[in-house]
């Protein structure tokens, strides 16, 4: 079973292809991420792997949060490719992606953050291999509440230093990462495939409005 993973929420575009959780293409290996052009990524992938696009069984798409136009670029492509092939798209939050990678490395609760506008941020809380919540607001307001009752926390994202300063009595483990690696989309695809949706449903980007719903 071939799974295509697309992640465009971070500053870099990433496209990965896997067969039964085994990575067979990663755009990072081709220094294509800065191109910010899905067409180049997918054509390189198909050329390199000699795989026909019609062989793809499902698409796992990063739905953010992240750069709003970048997220929509990836989702528009993922949705329309899934629609045209008659296959499923599986939506995954960028905060979940970050949480999975940090949990794998440290097996501790993870707070991952993504910068937003007007001093706000998206905060994801990940624990016991599961994304527990996504919240939107200022870091100063969200972090003390999310960290309540925890002794150790792994931090991922743009606000790592700020979080350390806000929680001086906690043990903070700095992951050193800004976001999760896209290859998780295929290497851990078994975590996401049960959320497969087919048209007329499709992936929708996460933004402050969708969180509040």
């Amino acid at each position: 079973m071939l799974t295509l993973g697309i992640s465009t929420s971070s500053g870099q575009f990433a496209l990965v292809l896997g067969e039964d959780n085994k990575l067979i293409f990663d755009s990072d290996d081709f220094q294509l991420s800065e191109k910010k052009d899905i067409s180049i990524l997918i054509s390189t992938c198909l050329e390199f792997t000699k795989i026909s696009v019609s062989s793809i069984s499902n698409i796992i798409a990063d739905i953010g949060p992240g750069g709003t136009s970048r997220v929509r670029t990836g989702i528009a492509f993922a949705n329309s490719l899934a629609y045209s092939l008659g296959i499923a798209v599986c939506p995954v939050s960028s905060l979940e992606l970050a949480g999975i990678e940090a949990w794998d490395n440290y097996a501790r609760p993870v707070i991952s953050t993504v910068k937003s506008i007007n001093g706000n941020a998206y905060c994801g809380f990940f624990n016991n291999n599961k994304l527990i919540s996504i919240e939107y607001g200022t870091i100063n307001n969200l972090i003390p509440h999310l960290a309540n009752g925890l002794e150790e926390i792994v931090v991922v994202g743009y606000h790592r230093e700020l979080i350390k300063s806000l929680l001086p009595t906690k043990k903070i483990i700095d992951s050193g990462s800004l976001y999760g690696n896209a290859k998780i989309l295929v290497e851990k695809s078994y975590l996401f495939l049960d959320r497969a949706i087919f048209f007329p449903k499709f992936a929708i980007p996460i933004n402050e409005k969708t969180i509040q719903r």
Partner: peptide, 19 residues
């Protein structure tokens, strides 16, 4: 508008590839 154009363009690219 760039943000609007990107949605249409990337949708078209996905459809074109699939079809």
């Amino acid at each position: 508008l760039i943000s609007s154009l990107l949605v249409g363009i990337n949708t078209a690219v996905g459809l074109g590839l699939g079809w």
